[in-house]
């Protein structure tokens, strides 16, 4: 598998504040990667370095073997930068067509490509509108559309669903899932449920320090756990769960959420037994997840 992004010992200082501390990681082509971390952890700084908006203070960064900002990457990398806005003075069509032409499309090709990407975000009807005439969510979707011009091999999305209503957020997630076979994605978000569904790799940034985890691999190592979300109940859920056959331990996350530990070797059909046990004890479940949730993996 070829390398998509390579970061080696990247540091970034803003004055005396160090935003990124010796960050090193490698991502492979085809992966969908989550970039997570608390506010101020350095996510947007790392994004900005990958997009060549910021230069690293030290260290090496390459995308497809090229330096960020290299003209060889034009058309291969698309991005949704955080808080970037389109020019309010020009129609959407006018701006997206310019971007397409800068990527090498002819005038006619640019027109049809502009329409294609707007259709992908279900906004082809705003082609001739100016950004000021659109709602926040629509503007966000248009900026996601610009990231898809030319079907880039790598798409970096900084907070793609922030500010979107649930229906549109779902559409964007669906869009990423649809395209994930054809393009690699890096998605920065605070919505861990969303990232869990979309991504195979997690880059966790905390105070400028980075750790890298495989979501699938992590789940495989924790097959002794099931994360259980119950409907609200007056029953003593912890005791009842402990009494279910095969349960090795219960960890209470909150009043409704539990991590149920079991022995996968001795109880290969534990998930079925768990559901049966819940039914016997009169407990209704809302969600049952094999392994730890991303939130549990990262922050527990």
């Amino acid at each position: 598998m070829s390398t998509l992004i390579s970061c080696q010992n990247v540091n970034k200082f803003f004055g005396s504040k160090q935003a990124l501390k010796d960050v090193s990681f490698e991502l492979n082509v085809g992966e969908t990667t989550a970039l997570v971390g608390p506010n101020g952890a350095g996510k947007t700084t790392l994004f900005s370095i990958l997009c060549n908006y910021h230069l690293p203070s030290s260290g090496d960064v390459s995308i497809f073997g090229k330096k960020p900002g290299s003209t060889a990457l034009v058309g291969r990398v698309g991005a949704l930068p955080q808080d970037a806005q389109l020019d309010p003075r020009f129609a959407i069509k006018h701006q997206l067509e310019l971007y397409a032409k800068l990527q090498g499309f002819s005038k006619k090709e640019a027109q049809s490509e502009c329409l294609r990407v707007l259709e992908r975000v279900e906004l082809s009807h705003v082609l001739n509108e100016r950004p000021a005439a659109l709602s926040h969510g629509m503007r966000k979707r248009v900026t996601i559309a610009q990231a898809l011009i030319g079907s880039p091999e790598l798409v970096m999305l900084d907070e793609p669903t922030a500010g979107l209503d649930p229906a549109n957020a779902r559409n964007i997630r669906q869009l990423v899932m649809d395209l994930s076979g054809d393009a690699s994605f890096i998605i920065s978000s605070h919505n861990l449920d969303e990232l869990e569904r979309l991504c195979s790799t997690v880059l966790l940034l905390e105070q400028g320090n980075l750790s890298q985890q495989e979501i699938g691999q992590q789940a495989a190592n924790n097959q002794q756990s099931i994360t259980l979300l119950l409907e609200p109940t007056e029953l003593a859920a912890t005791e009842l769960l402990t009494s279910i056959q095969g349960v090795k331990g219960i960890e209470m996350v909150n009043k409704q959420e539990f991590i149920v530990k079991y022995d996968a070797f001795n109880s290969p059909t534990f998930d079925i037994e768990l559901i049966q046990g819940l039914q016997q004890h009169g407990l209704q479940y809302r969600q049952l997840t094999k392994g730890l949730s991303l939130e549990q993996q990262l922050f527990a």
Partner: peptide, 15 residues
């Protein structure tokens, strides 16, 4: 463009 962030869309496509 720099203040608004529009320059970031352009810099994905031009030096």
């Amino acid at each position: 463009d720099a203040t608004r962030g529009t320059i970031r869309f352009l810099l994905l496509r031009t030096s």
